[in-house]
Amino acid sequence: MGLLDFFRTTSPSANLAKERLRIIVQQERGSRGAPDYLPTLRRELLEVIRKYVNVDSEAVQVNYEREEGQEVLELSVALPVKAR
């Protein structure tokens, strides 16, 4: 690293790319071969939940897993942190 680099303030972004990819790729692999209705299901769930709580669009996660002939649909809803 040269002297001029010392004054550069931008932080390396490759790690950020790697982390984001790791998460999205894992998630997409999980939903491979999953029923086509999952995205719609997720959207509709989000609508219903939003009638009661104002949640982010990424608050509802739908995961589908198949293990030993058993199919598992896992739903997780992250509620917003209450404002003081």
């Binding site: 932080s11 972004s13 790697k18 990819l21 790791r22 790729v25």
Partner: peptide
């Protein structure tokens, strides 16, 4: 750019895929 941390490395891509 990989050395500068600006680009995914071979190991990163291998690892993810």
């Amino acid at each position: 750019r990989v050395a500068a941390g600006e680009m995914l490395s071979i190991a990163d891509v291998k690892d993810i895929l």
